[in-house]
Design a protein around this nucleic acid. Structure first.
Lengths: 142, 142
DNA sequence: CGTTGTTAGTTACAAAAGCAACTGATACCT
DNA sequence: AGGTATCAGTTGCTTTTGTAACTAACAACG
């Protein structure tokens, strides 16, 4: 039997991620001029507070050069500040400035609304199940 | 209550898609020197037979410039041939050469095995449910 | 016809991502 | 201490992507 394209999970994940990301992009791009990686870094810092670049790399599975450039860009936008750790001067503690926090708060509200719209789209039960499965898959893979 | 990062569906989809894609990449990259978009185009042609570039764009939600370049690359690799449609000479019918079919067949087997390994990872019921939900989401979004 | 508009696909240029080599700092090992 | 290895983060260079303008073919309307 011929394999159906809609049966290959990597394809489905890519497609879904692509479509959903594209729809959310205007929120951080138009208002704040952020790139996707910048938004992701801001998101992580907003959620977890102070982190090092390495921690962001690991948690978000983003390559260190991408994070490095996003951090530089966010710093230039005055959304983030860095402070070298005194016990190990290779590390920098990254944290959001008040302006960064404000941007994060505002975007977090919009993200929540966007998420809710996705929930409406697929139905509440499926939505929870989908998140659970994706978390499971991510945990197994990373 | 603080929103958890693992509760934002676009983030989860991106993360899952990224991790899974990265794992499958070696199959088409190392053996055939293909890029991701090339593999996706090959995949579609392998499944659907003859198609135009536009049809691939629509079905796969890939931008036409990306498809155009992937088609050129696949043609250079002798995996694909184009034939201008006589009833409307703007269109080109794209089809796989025997070499392209062979590559597709081989990759389709590996893709199926890869998919099965993902099924093992998340469990059969969740796997089916996940695919169903993603298909549903994609249908609603595109 | 011929002019205007639209469509499939390409190309040129700019932005972003990937990769490998690098810097500065720490750890380890003798 | 001195030498080597390792690690966090950056930078330079190449590859890939995104955007907009373009070409060639068709359509519609006068």
């Amino acid at each position: 039997m011929k394999p159906e394209i809609s049966d290959f999970l990597p394809y489905l994940l890519n497609q879904a991620a692509e479509l959903v990301s594209r729809d959310f992009q205007p929120f951080y791009k138009d208002r704040y001029g952020m790139l996707r990686t910048e938004w992701r870094v801001l998101f992580h810092l907003g959620h977890h507070g102070e982190m090092t670049a390495k921690q962001i790399c690991e948690q978000a599975s983003i390559h260190k050069t991408k994070v490095s450039r996003a951090v530089t860009a966010l710093e230039k936008k005055r959304f983030l500040r860095r402070e070298t750790l005194e016990d190990d001067r290779r590390f920098e503690a990254l944290s959001l400035t008040p302006a960064g926090k404000a941007a994060f708060d505002s975007l977090a509200v919009e993200a929540a609304a966007f998420d809710a719209s996705l929930e409406d789209m697929v139905g509440q039960d499926d939505f929870e199940a989908l998140k659970r499965m994706l978390n499971h898959l991510i945990a197994k893979k990373s």
